[in-house]
Write a protein that binds this DNA or RNA. Structure first.
Lengths: 196, 196
DNA sequence: TATAAAAACGATCATACGTTCGTATCTTGG
DNA sequence: CCAAGATACGAACGTATGATCGTTTTTATA
C-alpha cells in the first residue's frame, strides 16, 4: 500500500492537532500514545512522522500556538481602551471567554508545561510571562492613577489570574450559569478587591 | 543476595512515599518509572512490591493521605471559632499555610487526579468536595447573617479556592514575600470581595 | 504531460515499562 | 535461640512505546 486517495497535508495536519488536543486533554501527554493518536486520525503510526518531527514537537506546537494566539487576542482586545478600569474589565471578560472556549489548550498549556523539554519550556514560560504582564501593567497604571488600591501588584496579579483561570476546572457552558453571569460575578469579585 | 542488613519495613515505606512525592511532583506520575523510584530509595525495582500493591496504589495512597489530613486539619483549625468572619479568616490562613507546606501533595492531588482509576478518583473527588464545602458553608452562614454580600456562593467559593490554591505555582518561601504578608494580602483581597 | 515532492503503508527496531517469581538473608516474637 | 515472617535480590516476562525505513501511490509543479 501507499499514499491514500484524497490525502492532503493540510487536512491531516489539522486532524492530528485536533486529535492531539483531545487526547492530551483527556489523558495527559505521556499517557497518550502515538498509536492512539494515529488511530484517531485514521493513519498508521509511522505516517504521523510525515507531519510531526517528534511527539515532543507536537506538544510544543500545540502549546506555542495557544500562547501566541492568547497574546494576539488580548492585545487586540485592549487596543484603543484607555481607562485602567475599562482595561481591567476588558481583560477579565476576555480571559474568561477565551478560557471557556479553549479549555483544552489552556489546560494543556499549564498541566503539560513540565512535559516540555527545558528549551521549549523556557520559550513558553516567557510567553506566559508576557501575558501576565498585560494584567500587572493594567494594575500598575490603575495604582499610579490612584484608581486602585493594591498591597502588592505582582501577588495580586497572580491571585487574580489564578482565580479567573480556575473556572477551567469546573465551568460547564451548558450548566446553570451563563457566560455573561460568570463574567459579572468575577468582575465584581476582582473590582471589589482592587478598587480604592 | 537477599535481605539487606538494617532493613525495616516502616523506614522503607516512608522512603518510598517521600521519593514518590518528589518524583511525581517533578515529573508526573506517568513519567516516573518504578525503576527510578526504586533507585531513589536504594532498592531493586521488584523489591518495591514488598511495600506497594501497584504503581496506581501508591498514587492513590499519597493523594488519599493528603486529602484526609487536609480535612482533619481544617476541622481542627475551625473548631471553636463561631463568627463567620473569623472562620473565613482562619480558613484563608490555614489554606495558604498548608498549601505552602505541602506544595507537592497539593499539586499531585490536583494534577494527577486523572491518573487515578475511576474508582479511586471518585473517592478523592468526594473528599475534595467535602473540603470545598467547608468554605462554601462559611460563606453561606455569612450571607445568612447579613455579613457577606455574595452573588453566587458556589461560584465565589470556587473562585476563592482557585485564587488561594494558585500560590502553589509561584510562591517561594525563601522569596521576597513572607508567609504573614502573603496571608494578609490574600485575606484583604478575599474579604473586600465578599464583605457587605 | 513528465517529474519531483508529498503522503501513506507495513514491517521492524531497540528500549523501557510494570510486574512476577524463586531464592537468600535478616529481624523478631515466643 | 529458633522458627516464622518480613525484606531484598536478581533475573525474567510480556507488552507497549517512540521512532525509522524502504516502498508505493497520489498530488502538484513547471
Amino acid at each position: 500500500m501507499s499514499r491514500t486517495a484524497g490525502s492532503s497535508g493540510k487536512k491531516t495536519q489539522a486532524a492530528i492537532r485536533e486529535a492531539g488536543l483531545d487526547l492530551i486533554y483527556a489523558q495527559g501527554f505521556d499517557a497518550m500514545s502515538l498509536r492512539q493518536l494515529a488511530a484517531r486520525v485514521g493513519l498508521q503510526p509511522g505516517s504521523l512522522y510525515n507531519h510531526i518531527a517528534t511527539k515532543q514537537d507536537l506538544l510544543y506546537d500545540l502549546i506555542h500556538n495557544h500562547m501566541v494566539t492568547l497574546l494576539e487576542r488580548i492585545d487586540a482586545e485592549l487596543e484603543g481602551i484607555e481607562h485602567p478600569l475599562d482595561r481591567l474589565k476588558a481583560f477579565i471578560a476576555f480571559h474568561l471567554t477565551y478560557h471557556i472556549e479553549r479549555k483544552r489548550e489552556v489546560f494543556i498549556g499549564s498541566a503539560e508545561l513540565r512535559s516540555l523539554e527545558p528549551r521549549n519550556r523556557k520559550k513558553i514560560v516567557a510567553l506566559r510571562r508576557a501575558y501576565e504582564d498585560r494584567l500587572s501593567g493594567i494594575l500598575e497604571t490603575g495604582v499610579a492613577g490612584k484608581l486602585f488600591k493594591i498591597d502588592d501588584v505582582a501577588v495580586s496579579a497572580y491571585a487574580i489570574l489564578a482565580m479567573l483561570t480556575g473556572i477551567c476546572t469546573w465551568y460547564d457552558p451548558k450548566g446553570r450559569i451563563g457566560r455573561r453571569e460568570l463574567i459579572d460575578i468575577h468582575t465584581r469579585l476582582v473590582l471589589q478587591g482592587v478598587l480604592k
